[in-house]
């Protein structure tokens, strides 16, 4: 990969990677740092990375960095946001999109990341497995459990409303 290819990757994937990290961590600073460190690593190893694999390379690095470095922090902050979610639902001021966003925060890091990779980036189970280091079967099971959890939340919100 040349410097030109690298800059092309920045143009194409920096926004998506930042969104993935921001939705995963819910912390703009953490998301920013993770994006920067991911692209830094891509630049260092650009000679070994194929342009076609650039996106999955970036998401893989970002995912593992996020899991390794900020898991505890994320967990604590998400637990603290739960009352806000209930309040938002009761206040009937949130649309389906916001409710889903709040529901997403109830999932664990792995479930949330898999949902984001599937829905935002459109990766297949195999591709998600490659990025996260899981096998395709684990991806399938994890994703399905996350979907059913989200569905239950939607049903419960409907009941509240």
């Amino acid at each position: 990969m040349t410097a030109e290819n690298y800059n092309e990757c920045v143009s194409k994937y920096a926004d998506g990677l930042y969104r993935f990290m921001l939705k995963s961590t819910r912390q703009a600073e953490d998301a920013h740092d993770l994006v920067q460190s991911s692209f830094e690593k891509l630049w260092v190893h650009r000679a070994e990375v194929n342009m076609l694999k650039c996106k999955s390379y970036l998401f893989t690095i970002a995912y593992h960095n996020m899991i390794d470095q900020v898991r505890k922090k994320i967990r604590m902050e998400y637990r603290e946001t739960v009352p806000d979610f209930q309040q938002a639902v009761k206040g009937n001021s949130a649309g389906l999109k916001d409710i889903l966003e709040k529901a997403l925060s109830r999932l664990n890091e792995r479930q949330r990341s898999l949902i984001l990779l599937k829905d935002y980036e459109g990766y297949s189970y195999d591709e998600i497995a490659e990025i996260t280091g899981l096998n395709a079967s684990q991806v399938k099971v994890t994703l399905h459990r996350a979907r059913l959890q989200l569905k239950e939340w939607l049903v419960s919100v409907e009941n509240v409303l």
Partner: peptide, 14 residues
């Protein structure tokens, strides 16, 4: 409905 609709978020320091 559990599918998230992609939202456009820009990385400002690109």
């Amino acid at each position: 409905q559990t599918r998230l609709m992609p939202t456009e978020i820009l990385f400002e320091k690109k």
